[in-house]
């Protein structure tokens, strides 16, 4: 089925394009949401990615890989490109707070995926991008540095700050929820 869709996209068949878009929409938008600050931004990244997919579909070789992995790579790269172009300066916001690790641990389990996603989206772009690439995509700091044009140390530092900020936010959210339940 996917092969037919890809073939249809190669012929610029609008119906095939819509079906391919619909097929991968949810999965790819989920990725975009993690890199973006809001849904609108995520949809922009998604559509820019699919634009590239449709314009370059003739380059895709079915024998060398599957189309999902190919589209996923394009989506991730588009999100990274967007970050690289729009973040002219590194976010140097220093987080100055104490957090409770135990709360962070509990909070992850107690919060919904949507709530956690919201907290990830609230991270500064530099932290969010490194966090996604390291924690979700599984890239090394060296690879992240190469992709984002930053040093390995900066990548590590951004990740640590992202983790701290997330843990703090999780703790606060957990605490709010706990008090609401107590009432």
């Amino acid at each position: 089925m996917l092969t037919d869709l890809v073939e249809g996209c190669r012929k610029e068949d609008r119906n095939a394009q819509r079906k391919l878009y619909e097929h991968f929409h949810s999965k790819m938008l989920g990725i975009c949401l993690r890199y973006a600050a809001c849904r609108e931004e995520a949809v922009e990244v998604l559509n820019s990615s699919f634009y590239k997919v449709f314009k370059n579909i003739h380059r895709f070789d079915d024998k060398k890989g599957n189309v999902e992995a190919w589209i996923r790579t394009i989506v991730t790269n588009t999100a990274i490109d967007r970050y690289r172009k729009e973040s002219k300066r590194p976010n140097t916001i220093d987080l100055d707070y104490a957090y409770k690790e135990s709360h962070g641990s509990v909070a992850v389990e107690d919060l919904t995926a949507g709530e956690i996603l919201k907290l990830v989206q609230e991270l500064p772009p530099a932290y969010r991008t490194v966090f996604n690439l390291f924690a979700i995509e599984g890239f090394s700091h060296k690879e992240i540095g190469e992709r984002l044009g930053i040093s390995e140390g900066t990548s590590k530092s951004n990740l640590a700050k992202a983790r701290k900020k997330l843990q703090k936010a999780l703790s606060i959210n957990y605490e709010i929820k706990r008090r609401q339940h107590a009432k």
Partner: peptide
């Protein structure tokens, strides 16, 4: 590692529903 795995497992399940408006924007771009 544990913290990241927990987050990852939570986030990997996020698959928003298809919104026809998204395709409309895509089609306009095309």
């Amino acid at each position: 590692e544990d913290f990241f795995n927990r987050i990852k497992s939570k986030l990997s399940g996020i698959e928003p529903d298809f919104d026809p408006g998204d395709w409309a924007a895509m089609e306009a771009m095309l």
